[in-house]
Design a protein around this nucleic acid. Structure first.
Lengths: 360, 360
DNA sequence: GCTAGGATTGAGACCGGACTCACATCGGGG
DNA sequence: CCCCGATGTGAGTCCGGTCTCAATCCTAGC
């Protein structure tokens, strides 16, 4: 073991034992609160530990006990309040059961996610909660399960993997909100997402994200039920940064047969979409209707307030932590599995379609 | 060591050695990439490790090397994009130097912060970056330093502690923005913050947060230079949740001598303040001017766009990680220490004062 | 062929704490 | 006094990997 110059060597159980004039085993028992030790010895040990500023080495402890009392959480975007809230749900719940939570951010990058999972498992966390970046590239998640490590997915599922997953039924809410737009007269509804694909969207295309796939499925179902053709050309993926989001928004709004409504797949890109709409001098909802996923607090402050799809994110975090702790403790899954429902919150950003006429 | 029923025992170096028919030391050298080992043996070991799905135990490794290659980050509010961006700066920088980042959230609670610091040190992270909840209750931070552990503070300082801190000079920007408000004719400027105190604000009162204290100092300085009396009654602290933020906002706007401008101390409470202003049927900036700390993306989307104080948060995160890594590596501090400057971004939410007359 | 130096190898100690088990002590009951 | 049960104690082992150092092997040069 190499020595770090300015670092003071940590006090060990053996040091405390010496100072308290007891055996190492006595000191360890008092400090680790296991086994039997007389109250007199315990008192002497705890006093010596405090005097010496003893700090337990959780690495050693975990190696011996096989448990770290730590939950690893892997999220896709630390700046998205969606994950902030979910994480809070996880942390609140874990704390109550005596677990610490450590968090790693992946920026929705699958390679970073694979790495984060590896790091956390190498550190022998007791279990993992992962918001997978992809529902296709899941080998790393499957191998977590194969090794018997507790795993719960959050927000997105992982294809055909049989793993506890806390997520909203996206097809359902997408179906409902698309019907709402269709009933307001909209037929040209654009859907804009950051999801990375090799090529432009085509009908039936297999998508990396089950969440986006489900949303599109819900939209198409609503179109079918209304007897309308789904506007495939208005599904715009790969809107990766603010500039491309704005470019895509301009395209769908300025094309010969423009979109009369825009659906933003998450709150962060919604900002750039709304900005682009404003830059084009278009009014919401007079010129273009707007709807976005996630109920961020600021959506109530704009003029008009925005129509949103609210997800029970905190509760999903709570449920994920509970499920994981049950796995860690070897308890069976809770049945029936918890269901999470998103809610369409109608505010002022969706209006009756007449935009096409006004804009020409 | 207790056994967890469904968990498969992890493969060890000894298992790999057996499978590769080499000594444990040979296998360890090949897997740990240290010492000398022939290419032939190395190949056999790596193949066996892959065959067996060997996963190194970082706990054991850290115990031996005395290093974990991990940086612990303690932030005050995971839902605040301010910390999201700082964390991204930290993570991006740490990754480049081969460090993993683990994050713990404290909800701006000092007890939670003390606990987070303890957990991370128990886990023997190589160093800590902490955004302290308090600049007064800093004993836990001082003891980190006393034990020789690398520590860097982010965003807020810790009173008289001599510790590398990456933060903006709050007095300066507060002075500048207050002058801007004063020059627009405002004399009744309210400052609303979540900071917890035992009693209402009084002149000269010692505050737990140096950041808030500096902002108030900057305001008072601008008032003094203009020859105006600082409206102590308009400093409203303890605005802890959305409802009390709204209540406080109503109070300062409806009092006999009402505020004509409101300064929000952070972007999260700004949301509730703006909401309260809207609920009162008041217009920004016609009836009341508004200014907030932090340049959140949504502040450009409101009508009018909001005047904000932008902080170089990402860069602060980058600098914090660099400073910490230097400490870990035993290198001297970088001189001169990096300076961070906030910028007043003037948009549409500050207008010429005439509110008092219109509102009566 | 011999020697020297570099590379490789393997045994054992170690990191810091949890665990096991044989032994010692104490107190109560017969 | 003896026996038994409960409680406390201490020595040694173990977790999984790194490090050290003596011994061995291999190769190149003389």
């Amino acid at each position: 073991m190499s020595s770090n110059g300015s670092r003071r060597r940590e006090i060990t159980v053996a040091d405390v034992a010496r100072a308290a004039q007891v055996s190492k085993a006595q000191a360890a028992r008092a400090l680790g609160n296991y086994g039997a030790v007389s109250e007199e010895v315990r008192g002497r040990v705890l006093a010596a530990a405090e005097e010496l500023s003893y700090r337990p080495n959780e690495l050693a402890r975990s190696m011996n006990t096989g448990k770290s009392n730590t939950i690893g959480v892997v999220v896709g975007d630390i700046e998205n309040p969606h994950f902030g809230l979910a994480t809070r749900g996880i942390t609140d719940t874990a704390k109550k059961s005596g677990y610490n939570v450590i968090l790693i951010n992946t920026d929705e990058d699958t390679a970073a996610e694979v790495d984060a999972v590896r790091v956390l498992l190498d550190k022998r966390v007791d279990g993992l909660i992962v918001a997978p970046a992809s529902s296709v590239a899941t080998r790393h998640l499957q191998s977590v399960q194969d090794s018997g490590r507790p795993l719960v997915l959050l927000d997105r599922n992982a294809g055909p993997m049989d793993v506890e997953t806390m997520a909203v039924d996206m097809a359902d809410i997408s179906h409902e909100s698309t019907k709402y737009l269709l009933q307001a007269g909209h037929r040209r509804i654009a859907f804009i997402s950051t999801l990375r694909t090799e090529s432009s969207y085509r009908a039936g295309m297999l998508l990396d994200s089950s969440q986006i796939a489900d949303r599109l499925e819900g939209m198409q179902q609503a179109y079918r039920e209304g007897g309308f053709d789904f506007p495939v050309d208005l599904v715009r993926l790969n809107a990766g940064d603010a500039e491309s989001i704005r470019r895509v928004t301009r395209e769908v709004l300025l094309m010969p047969d423009p979109a009369t409504a825009v659906v933003a797949s998450d709150g962060l890109i919604a900002l750039s979409i709304v900005e682009a709409i404003q830059e084009l001098g278009l009014a919401i909802p007079a010129d273009v209707s707007f709807l976005m996923y996630d109920d961020f607090a600021w959506t109530r402050l704009t003029t008009p307030p925005l129509t949103v799809i609210a997800q029970p994110v905190y509760n999903m975090g709570v449920a994920a932590a509970k499920a994981l702790i049950r796995q860690i403790q070897g308890l069976p899954r809770r049945t029936p599995a918890p269901k999470f429902t998103a809610t369409l919150i109608r505010r002022g950003s969706v209006g009756i379609r007449r935009a096409a006429e006004v804009r020409k």
